[in-house]
Design a protein around this nucleic acid. Structure first.
Length: 801
RNA sequence: GGGCAUGUGGCGGAAUUGGUUUACGCGUAGGUCUCAAAAACCUAUGGUCGCAAGGCCGUGUGGGUUCGAGUCCCACCAUGCCCACCA
């Protein structure tokens, strides 16, 4: 048993003083390697064993790269703005600033106790005014280019957190943070025009190496679909309603037009609507409902006919009734849908409910029983009769375009990014509202707009930010006319600071620019970025968007930020549930480090299973890894295990070098660790000895994964310089290839025998040798050999009747 | 309902990508050491029949392709994640 606590602490102190072990150099003869983990949100709960999983694995990779001669940047920082800290602060009466500082201090201590080789000289904190000055600066650029704008829009409103939510945060109609059902509210909000980049965010995925499932998820999230717009003129009016559809081939089957309750046209036409009180009532009821209620598939489809208004089907000039129904979504396709009950499930249900006509225009189904949704041959559609749906879509779309009544169009599921938060603990949006000059950006020289340090930061509950209550901060001078003006009181979401932090790491102390362009040029792109799958459609997409925007301004050198994206699976609790305070199944890494050591924990989390897969924690598995390190320690402390390396052992050493090199590179950390275990088992065999040099090779291979114990053993063998400055071992191809192998002998595809023979034997020799064996003879008996399959250096299969 | 995964011992998982199924670890059983226990070490460990040699079965289920399938194809079942009245 080795004393992990003592050794680990000792080396951590030594390493901290030796920058060569962890600090990246700006510019170097060496090739650069930028390895990035998602910087943590320093929560009150402290470091999670899930953090440890990805930091340890990537640390092993970073250390290996250094040994291979790379100039490695493996940075760390804090994504510290956000709601949990604010809530924690409110609950416990601590200022968010103090809570954050305390949490960061704790995280820093915990991360250091793992012996991770982060570059602490570049540590960043998104809540530091020297940092968020540049977050604000980038926002001003968005504003300048017209990509940051304000709009009065229905937003998801969480009644519990008293905060507006981005669509992406109100997944399934519930607040992502607290789980309360989201309501709809109309609020003036800042938005960033991410939709302007939708196409490039899809197309440029070709330029990067992301896990395929990550690409797919982003593409689906952006949700580009091609369809057709068709204008329905309002009868005896010069107004029109434009609908979006992917099934324009069914337009002759339209028996109503349905509007989303939020659709503005309803209010605009209220004079003409003869049953306005009824319609208005329905709108008010719908808007209050959460998305979860509105999108429930079991729900009966209800709506109200909008009387007094008719529209004209552009194709057949028929008059069509207008309805309002809340199953039509305001934010997609313009909030208006043409209803084709014969060929759409929802429309069919709705029509049945209200006795609306069902008109078949695509043959192939039985519409008296159910809607026919599949493509087919178009009927009852005048000159388009007989075409199949594909063709009809093309022709009708063309016809609409020719007649100036619509045409081909692209639609996205992706919405613009709601960028306002009515909260205290975020970057103030650097804007001033002046009665005379309107919305005025804070001049660059006046950045940062610092968050005032105040006692009162509770949400107002009125929908306004707590900052609105701080009069002396809100009231300011207009930068334009010097007249009295008011500061914007909304703050940015916590996704703001994390959208560009990887740029800041290249030059984290710069006061003149967000990062020096030469340094950006040297370090970008990020060579490997690892993070959780849950950030695929949020942070990962947002940061690509910001990066592309900066690229367009020629402020960053590459169109994409991350060359390679991988993700790690969650670490679940022993009971196979997510770790959470409420379940009382959270593990504290501090306890594990204290009892078993950081190296054991690191090795275990690499060994527990495939890196990208969710795995539940198993303390016995951890103990197994501790045993492995103990065994290694023990064998290095037995002089009789040192001696000469015989040929078979030398082969093992070279095979180990190959396996570890390849497995780490492929992020197959679990099999890398098992290879170390196999090697120790091999060395443990009776009378098995290794030369000091080969034992040291083993240590050099293991050092990135278990840095402390390897450093200790390395010095105990008489070395004077850190093992982490050693070169990575190389293997010789000849040594990896053994001269002998087990030839597998199959009869009819079943393994019946095997024989150890040397490589390079010719086929006739082998066939003869094999057929002479007793086991083979027995199985063949008097049957006829039909054919023999021979796979060189692997197996031979004798096929008999 | 759609999309993406996944399904291998008692458990976590491995399998050179079509060629020895179950590496490594956990657990379990037996042994060594000990007054005893723990730890450590050694041995065994898919099921089944057999004293044994050995046989048969076995990667969710059913088919298919192949000399040969955990791996490829088709259908089904189950589980997980993401999305979902998206028109």
């Amino acid at each position: 048993m080795y004393n992990a606590a003592k050794i680990e602490k000792k080396w951590q102190e030594v390493w901290e003083k030796n920058e060569k072990l962890w600090a990246a150099e700006d510019f170097s003869e060496k090739p650069k390697q930028y390895i990035l983990i998602e910087f943590p949100y320093p929560s009150g709960e402290g470091l999670h064993v899930g953090h440890v999983r990805s930091y340890s694995a990537l640390d092993a990779l970073a250390r290996k790269k250094r040994m291979e001669g790379y100039n490695v940047l493996y940075p760390i920082g804090w994504d510290a703005f956000g709601l949990p800290t604010e809530n924690y602060a409110i609950k416990n009466g601590v200022h968010p600033r103090e809570a954050t500082d305390k949490n960061i201090k704790n995280y820093r201590r915990q991360i250091k106790s793992l012996g991770l080789s982060f570059d602490w000289k570049r540590e960043i904190d998104t809540t530091d005014p020297d940092y968020y000055k540049w977050t604000q600066w980038i926002f001003l650029k968005f504003f300048e280019k017209g990509l940051a704008y304000q709009a009065e829009i229905p937003i998801n409103w969480c009644p519990k957190c008293k905060i507006g939510l981005a669509n992406e945060e109100a997944i399934g109609g519930v607040c992502e943070r607290c789980g309360a059902p989201a309501e709809k509210r109309s609020v003036k909000q800042w938005l960033l025009k991410i939709t302007a980049y939708a196409d490039r965010l899809i197309e440029d995925l070709d330029k990067v190496d992301y896990l395929e499932k990550i690409k797919t998820q982003q593409i689906n999230w952006i949700g580009r679909s091609y369809g057709t717009n068709a204008d329905f003129k309002i009868k005896s009016s010069d107004q029109k309603i434009t609908v979006f559809t992917t099934r324009i081939d069914t337009i002759f089957g339209v028996t109503a037009l349905i509007l989303a309750p939020e659709n503005k046209i309803l209010r605009e036409l209220k004079e003409k609507i003869t049953n306005w009180p009824e319609v208005k009532n329905y709108i008010n009821e719908s808007v209050k409902k959460s998305d979860i209620e509105r999108t429930n598939e079991q729900k009966e489809r209800v709506g109200v006919e909008v009387k007094g208004i008719k529209v004209i089907n552009p194709l057949n000039r028929e008059e069509v009734a207008v309805w309002v129904a809340d199953y039509v979504i305001a934010t997609y396709g313009g909030g208006a849908v043409m209803m084709v009950p014969a060929h759409d499930r929802r429309d069919w249900d709705f029509a049945k409910n209200y006795g609306i006509a069902i008109k078949e225009v695509v043959s192939g189904g039985d519409i008296s029983k159910e809607p026919h949704i599949e493509y087919g041959r178009v009927i009852n559609s005048k000159e388009f009769n007989g075409l199949d749906s594909q063709e009809a879509i093309e022709k009708i779309t063309q016809w609409l375009a020719d007649n100036n009544l619509g045409g081909k169009t692209v639609n996205y599921k992706l919405r613009d990014w709601i960028f306002s938060r009515q909260h205290y603990w975020g970057e103030p949006i650097p804007i001033v509202h002046c009665d005379k000059c309107g919305t005025v950006p804070v001049p660059e020289n006046d950045l940062p707009v610092e968050l005032p340090y105040v006692k009162k930061y509770q949400p107002t509950g009125t929908g306004e930010s707590p900052l609105a209550a701080i009069k002396e901060w809100v009231e300011t001078k207009c930068p334009n006319c010097q007249g009295p003006a008011k500061r914007e009181t909304d703050t940015m979401p916590n996704w703001a600071g994390s959208s560009w932090y990887f740029l800041r790491y290249t030059d984290s102390k710069n006061n003149n620019v967000f990062a020096d362009s030469k340094k950006l040029g040297y370090w970008l792109m990020v060579d490997l970025y690892n993070g959780g799958m849950e950030h695929t459609t949020l942070h990962l997409l947002y940061s690509r968007f910001w990066h592309k925007f900066l690229y367009d301004l020629k402020l960053v050198p590459t169109p994409e930020p991350y060359a390679k994206r991988r993700s790690h699976g969650m670490v679940l609790a022993e009971d196979n549930q997510k770790m959470s305070k409420s379940r009382d199944n959270v593990l504290n890494p501090d306890d594990i480090i204290e009892t078993h050591g950081a190296d054991s924990l690191r090795i275990y989390e690499m060994f527990m299973g495939p890196f990208d897969q969710a795995i539940n924690w198993n303390t016995n598995g951890l103990i197994g890894c501790r045993r492995f390190l103990d065994r290694a320690w023990g064998i290095f402390n037995r002089p009789e295990k040192f001696g000469s390396t015989d040929e078979s052992a030398e082969i093992k050493v070279h095979q180990l070098i190959k396996r570890i090199s390849e497995d780490l590179e492929a992020m197959k950390f679990n099999t890398a660790i098992s290879a170390f275990m196999e090697f120790i088992n091999f060395w443990s065999e009776k009378d098995r000895t290794l030369s000091k040099k080969d034992a040291e090779t083993f240590l050099r291979l293991l050092a990135p994964s278990a840095p402390h114990i390897c450093e200790e053993l390395w010095f105990s063998l008489g070395n004077k310089k850190s093992i982490h400055l050693e070169p990575w071992p190389q293997y010789s191809l000849e040594m990896v290839e053994e001269g002998e192998y087990d030839l597998i002998i199959q009869i009819n595809g079943k393994m019946r025998d095997k024989v150890r023979i040397s490589k390079g034997l010719e086929r006739p020799e082998i066939e003869q040798l094999v057929q002479a064996r007793d086991a083979v003879k027995k199985h063949i008996g008097d049957k006829e050999v039909k054919k023999i399959i021979y796979v060189p250096d692997r197996l031979i299969n004798i096929v008999i009747f």
